[in-house]
Each structure stands twice: as structure tokens, then as C-alpha cells.
């Protein structure tokens, strides 16, 4: 696979800089993002808490606890699945955690599936509130930005900004250990795939033939050390080498997300996931050999089951986007 600085115009084939919005040769929009249709909205795993599991009371405070007994109210369901046709995803609580702190949102613009996956940082308070607020804020901004003609990398940066604001609002006056989450977003269009991220949630490119790769580079201590010149084996041997160095939260830096745009050489699938999956299939080759053929929802379910069978120690979220993107179908959620 090639991580390209340039893309080819989908209409005339002329090379063009990834930063350009229109082909300089023929004027075709380079990122395949026409105006949104009214039907194609977006879905997310976020649901408002309904009734306290412990006492049955229906009122919850703005920080997410039952007004009556103090029980933590659910932010999202333990298991959710969405299938929008060209993109489908599954999120599952796993075997060990008390709540599902992963969240995801899927959307489509014509010919362009959109994905946002966030993983609540479990060492922060109310990581699930952060992840749900983040995906719900990010996806509509991502759609709007693309509709307005932003380059996908720029659109993802804008959606990260929206996610930060939403997570800050969730934090409220609680100053102890503010809610935090990771972030990964993908924009898959006819001519290119763009992925942007903050933290250690990942995107893998699995071509139908050829060498699979991990598109993202975790914002981890080890990778920081490697970037600063330390040999990889030494960096990974450091204590807390897997520790997050960037995340979305009040206590995090507000720099832009890392981003990559590339043009696949042929068909394949983009897998966007939380570390609930990648911890069991970290190497791209291992993930590729474990990923069966089939429609996106079926594949997402099978990869989720694989993580559960391997131990399911963390929440698992898997989103599958075939490339080139298929035409959207009626969205359905379960």
C-alpha cells in the first residue's frame, strides 16, 4: 500500500495534491463529496439514560448519576450494532468491564461513508460520557465540514475540535479526574481514504490482495520515544510504554489530530476499531488473516466475537468499511 501525498482525479485521472478541493485539470471535486441528501443522516451508539437499573428512578443529574440512589446511569448500551450498507459496526461491553465506554457513530454522504470511534479512558472518571459526547459532536461536524468542501483531514480536525468542546462540557465543574476518550475518524471516498486520530484507537487497511497495514500510529509513550530516536525494542521495554500521551479531555493538549490520506491501489476493507480488538490482533497481518470475507456487519460481528473469545478484557468496537465505497442503503440499527 502507498501512503500518498497526491491523489488522482477520479474523473480524468490527473494527479492532484491531496490538499486541493477540485481537480486543476477538469474541475471535478476531488474528494467525492456532493451535497448531503436528506435521507442519509447518521447514527450513534449513544442513548439517553432511561431508568436507573438499581432503583427504577427516572431522573439523572447532568453528570450522569441517578438523582435518587447515586447509581451511575448508563450512557450507551452494552451492545449495539448499526448497518448503513457501505459501513457497519458493532460495539460490545466485553467480559470484564462494568460498562461499555466505547462509542461509535456512522454516517454517510453520497458515496462517502464516515466513521467516528471513541474509547473512554478507563482511568478517567466517566470515560463513557466523554466517548459518547465526542462521537455525537464529531460526526455531524464531520459531515457539515465535508459538505462545505473542507479537505477530509481538515474536516476531521474540525470534528476533533467539536469533540473536545463536547467533552469539556461533560466535565462540568468536576475537577478531580476529567472524563477523557480516544478518537479515530475515517472518511472513505471513491478516490481516497483519510484517517485522523488522537490516542490509540486504530484503523487498519486490509487490501484484498497485497500487504495489510495499520494506518494509525498510536499516540503512546513508546511511539513518542521512537520518534525522538530511541530504538523500537528499547522504547517498548520502557515502563508504561503503552501509556497514552494524547487524548480528548479537559486535561489534554489541544493540538490537531494526526492524519493520513492515501489512495488504495485496489479494493479492500478499512477496519476502524478500539483496542478491545487490536490488543488481540495488533499486527496487520494477524488481523487480515482473521478477517473473513462477507458483508460489513457480518465481518464486524465476527471480529467482535473473535475479541470476546480471546478474553474480551476490554470494550470492543469494530467498524468495517469496504473500499471502494458501495452505494448507501436504508440505515438500520439494532
Amino acid at each position: 500500500m502507498v501512503i500518498a501525498q497526491t491523489i488522482d482525479c477520479p474523473a480524468c485521472g490527473a494527479p492532484a495534491s491531496a490538499g486541493f478541493r477540485f481537480c486543476e485539470a477538469c474541475g471535478t471535486p476531488l474528494h467525492g463529496v456532493p451535497a448531503p441528501s436528506a435521507a442519509a443522516e447518521w447514527v450513534s451508539s449513544s442513548t439517553a439514560p432511561q431508568r436507573c437499573e438499581a432503583c427504577g428512578h427516572t431522573g439523572f443529574s447532568s453528570d450522569g448519576y441517578c438523582d435518587q440512589c447515586g447509581q451511575r446511569g448508563p450512557t450507551g448500551p452494552d451492545h449495539s450494532e448499526f448497518d448503513l450498507g457501505p459501513v457497519a459496526g458493532v460495539s460490545d461491553i466485553g467480559h470484564r468491564h462494568e460498562r461499555n465506554e466505547d462509542a461509535f457513530a456512522l454516517g454517510t454522504l453520497p458515496g462517502t461513508p464516515l466513521v467516528v470511534v471513541c474509547d473512554g479512558v478507563s482511568s478517567s472518571s466517566r470515560g463513557d460520557a466523554a466517548s459518547h459526547a465526542a462521537v455525537d459532536a464529531a460526526l455531524p461536524v464531520l459531515r457539515t465540514a465535508l459538505t462545505e468542501g473542507s479537505h477530509p483531514e481538515r474536516a476531521i480536525a474540525r470534528s476533533v475540535h467539536a469533540a473536545r468542546e463536547a467533552v469539556t462540557a461533560v466535565a462540568g465543574p468536576d475537577q478531580g479526574n476529567p472524563p477523557s476518550c480516544t478518537f479515530v475518524a475515517a472518511v472513505v471516498s471513491a478516490g481516497s481514504i483519510t484517517v485522523g486520530w488522537v490516542g490509540d484507537s486504530r484503523a487498519y487497511w486490509l487490501p484484498d490482495g497485497g500487504t495489510p497495514c495499520c494506518v494509525t500510529v498510536d499516540d503512546s509513550l513508546a511511539n513518542e520515544l521512537i520518534a525522538s530516536g530511541m530504538p523500537a525494542d528499547e522504547a517498548h521495554a520502557q515502563p508504561h510504554s503503552g501509556a497514552l500521551v494524547r487524548w480528548i479531555g479537559v486535561d489534554a493538549d489541544d493540538g490537531p489530530p494526526k492524519a493520513r490520506t492515501f489512495t488504495p491501489e485496489g479494493p479492500g476493507r478499512l477496519i476502524v476499531c478500539s483496542d478491545g480488538l487490536s490488543r488481540y490482533r495488533s499486527a496487520p497481518e494477524a488481523l487480515a488473516s482473521s478477517t473473513p470475507p462477507g458483508p460489513p456487519l457480518a465481518v464486524a460481528r465476527q471480529l467482535t466475537q473473535l475479541a470476546l473469545d480471546a478474553g474480551g478484557v476490554d470494550n470492543i468496537t469494530v467498524v468495517v468499511v469496504p473500499y471502494p465505497p458501495a452505494a448507501p442503503t436504508e440505515g438500520s440499527a439494532q
Partner: peptide, 25 residues
């Protein structure tokens, strides 16, 4: 509470003129 559950045991706020000026859980 049940094992694995999280509950708010107290919400501690500082209040001036009926406005919450700081809060901890």
C-alpha cells in the same frame, strides 16, 4: 451496591449566592 457497580456517594459543592463555584464527586 452490587459488585462492579459505581455509585455516587456524595457530590460536594462550594456554593456562593446559590451558585456552584466548585464541585467534586
Amino acid at each position: 451496591g452490587t459488585l462492579g457497580e459505581e455509585r455516587l456517594a456524595a457530590r460536594v459543592s462550594l456554593v456562593s449566592d446559590d451558585t456552584v463555584i466548585a464541585q467534586s464527586l
